[in-house]
Amino acid sequence: MAHINYNHLYYFWHACRAGSIAGAAETLSLTPQTITGQIKVLEARLQGKLFRRQGRGLVPTELGQLVFRYADRMFMLGQEMLDIVNYRKESHLLLDIGVADGLSKQLVSKVLETAVIAEEKIHLRCFESTHEMLLEQLSQHKLDMIISDCSIDATQQEGLFSVKLGECPVSFWSTQPQPGVPFPACLETRPLLIPGRRSMLGRKILNWISSQGLQVDILGEFDDAALMKAFGVQHHAIFVASALGQQDGWQRDAIAEVGRLDTVFEEYHVIFVGRMIQHPAVQRICRADFSGLFPRQGTDEKKPA
């Protein structure tokens, strides 16, 4: 068999990842006819069909699955090589970090301080989104590392590593606490703001409310912790936030702690791809002792070798 044209293989790889010819064409800025023609040439070279129709999309055949597994490793390795070469070309060491939008930015900032040292020029680029969106960008090599409130399933996410930095208690806060009404019954007296249920913390809070048998009035769900706090202050609602490092910064807004949970904790994890194991900033974060930041120090879930 003659050598495979890697452009043909590249087009097939994108079509397989997108699940359609149109999706691959949009990603590659080519016409669908060009993608289809190149895949047909590859099928002729491999002497077999690579796709079959399923509804409006395409799924790989048995041969297609085999070819995709090898192509995926090849092109991902090539992307890693380019990333490493680009890092070395920069005058500053680049680190693209995704931050789950529900996390305390004050605590995330303290984690990021570990990555920066005076002896090393480093350029941080931070992006904020949901855990799911960040994980997708990480798998596409658009990010180097994620700081999130949940880890990964190593058996389902090959090539990714997860390290738990720690966890912190969670409290309810308000500008107008209800005197004389004990916690948690006081949560039934005021509108309540909670993290979005798409987040790990949001689901934990909802489960806790249900377990307590509380009849609460949930005014809103927020993915952004800072926005939830601002909205809570404006509407005198009770809202959820980390119990660490808030008291001093919130005194000017007359924000007081309504009650602290003893069974719900906000977790902090870093997730990164295999190529970043050697990145000095990632190594510093993974090896740092955060026991002073997180009273309940977490344990490593999946450490790189």
Rank of each mutant, 00 (worst) to 15 (best):
L227N: 10
Q297R: 13
R125M: 10
W250Y: 08
E132V: 06
G37N: 15
W250L: 14
G98D: 07
S109L: 08
W208Y: 04
F272H: 00
Q283N: 08
V258S: 03
I205A: 06
T114R: 14
I209S: 04
P191C: 08
R260F: 01
L28W: 12
Q251I: 07
L192H: 00
I205P: 02
L77A: 15
K164M: 13
K40F: 11
E120L: 09
V282I: 14
D253P: 03
K142M: 14
L219D: 13
S171T: 10
G78Q: 15
P32G: 05
R203K: 12
G55V: 08
L160W: 01
E301W: 00
D72G: 09
I277P: 00
S91C: 10
K302Y: 12
T130Y: 01
R56D: 11
E26G: 09
D83N: 15
A281S: 14
P191K: 05
R287N: 06
Q278M: 13
H279R: 07
S210F: 07
N7R: 14
F294S: 01
L107E: 09
L134I: 03
K142S: 14
L165S: 02
M228S: 10
Y70M: 14
L112Q: 06
L42W: 09
R287A: 11
V111T: 06
G102T: 11
A225R: 08
V170G: 02
C126G: 02
A226V: 13
L46F: 11
F12Q: 10
S162H: 01
P32L: 11
G19S: 04
C126E: 04
